[in-house]
Design a protein around this nucleic acid. Structure first.
Lengths: 236, 236
DNA sequence: ACCTGAACACCGTTCAAGT
DNA sequence: ACCTGAACACCGTTCAAGT
């Protein structure tokens, strides 16, 4: 009945043996809670009720774990987009592609730490290859040559997988309190940035903070590219 | 004359005092030689002929250094694009933008480790803000509303700065030696990927390795986006 | 004002040893 | 076959102490 006893033998389920799969799932859980940098051999071991050194029996080294969880997330993406079914012949390629990518995006919203890892390890993951293979299939149905489809995947870049690293986020620099003061100070150095923020604030007076709707911007960029590709498809 | 003496007092120039600027320049040099992960307080100190702890007098912590070198590279970008001069009124906005971005890209080719840092620290760099401000100016000259220009920067994403993280790189997975064998094995699981690689290899028999010309793909994606934006500009 | 030595709490990883 | 303790070489960072 004492807390001490309960702590010495944590939970009854913690006796199941380690495995590569359990290590990877633990890593995803830890990253979901504290980001990639929270993934530590010792932290994973804690999570699994084991010692750090025990992990090396199931994975070669930490990099191996990082490659592994990219594949785990990519499988989650494939599961998510697998639900989406619809025609992809001819002009329908575009909505098919759009739906797949937008539902892939949902997965990355659940794992905001994952994009950084994908940039380093995507090419080692079979699940990522399977994902791209499916996208190529859709484009083929739409009448793309392999050559154009190849360019298309490069043009989409990480957007094909459902995420875009945001390079440009005004409002990150200027704080939330002295809005007008900071804006005036900025107007001198960065007139267009200041003008833009003023216009957007005018359009939507409610959004004094959080200038950019990520979903809107993602879809804007995605549609811009898909529309351009569709034009090329038709003129080919 | 002995090597010992020479090693004890390395080079005569190593007496100049430390400074935030010297620390940042050393960090860029170290990263150029060994990537971001080579940036270590002790390694930087070595480079500067000092002790690791001395750096803390000039920078707050390692993150501060990483933010700092993003700004250093962004200034290098601004210097590079500053050379480019040309009209940007009306339809000329597109070539002006294109030239700026392509010459920004040259800087990142010299610092291939930098993109990863920009994704985390771009919004803290005044030089990055200045760069974006200039791009906005070009688009304004072209007749963009601030609203459309804002969407445009999001659509371009990292491409606006001159780099694109390559998500998709076939040929990374399949090795260089057993080409046909690996391709056959792949054909079962990833028919479209295999088909695409076969077609591309057919088009260009010389490129058995290195399927994708990065410069070509970058320009393809860039032009696709710029053309789409130009259409929106005209119909606005 | 500027730099450093010693020390701390953490890493990833190896290896011989336990069961 | 699977797990671990002790140990190593490395981190970033603090702090009192040197000049």
């Amino acid at each position: 009945m004492t807390q001490v006893t309960a702590q010495a033998e944590p939970t009854s389920g913690s006796r199941i043996p380690l495995s590569r799969d359990r290590v990877l799932r633990a890593a995803v859980k830890v990253a979901d809670e504290g980001g990639v940098e929270a993934i530590t051999m010792r932290r994973l071991a804690d999570e699994l009720g084991a010692e750090a050194m025990s992990l090396y029996y199931h994975v070669a080294r930490k990099e191996d774990i990082l490659e592994g969880i990219v594949d785990v997330i990519a499988r989650e993406v494939n599961d998510a987009v697998g639900q989406v079914r619809g025609p992809s012949e001819g002009a329908a390629w575009k909505t098919a592609m759009r739906q797949r990518i937008l539902s892939a995006r949902q997965v990355f919203l659940r794992h905001p730490w994952a994009p950084g890892l994908f940039e380093r390890h995507a090419s080692t993951s079979p699940a990522v290859l399977r994902y791209f293979d499916a996208l190529l299939g859709i484009m083929r149905d739409g009448g793309f040559s392999y050559d154009l489809a190849h360019h298309a995947l490069h043009a989409l870049g990480s957007r094909a997988l459902g995420f875009a690293q945001e390079m440009f986020d005004p409002g990150d620099g200027a704080g939330g309190e002295e809005d007008t003061a900071a804006l005036d100070a900025m107007a001198g150095q960065f007139p267009h940035l200041a003008g833009m923020m003023a216009e957007i604030a005018h359009d939507d007076p409610d959004s004094t903070l959080g200038w950019c709707d990520d979903q809107t911007e993602f879809e804007f960029g995605l549609d811009l590219i898909l529309d351009g590709l569709d034009r090329m498809r038709q003129s080919a």
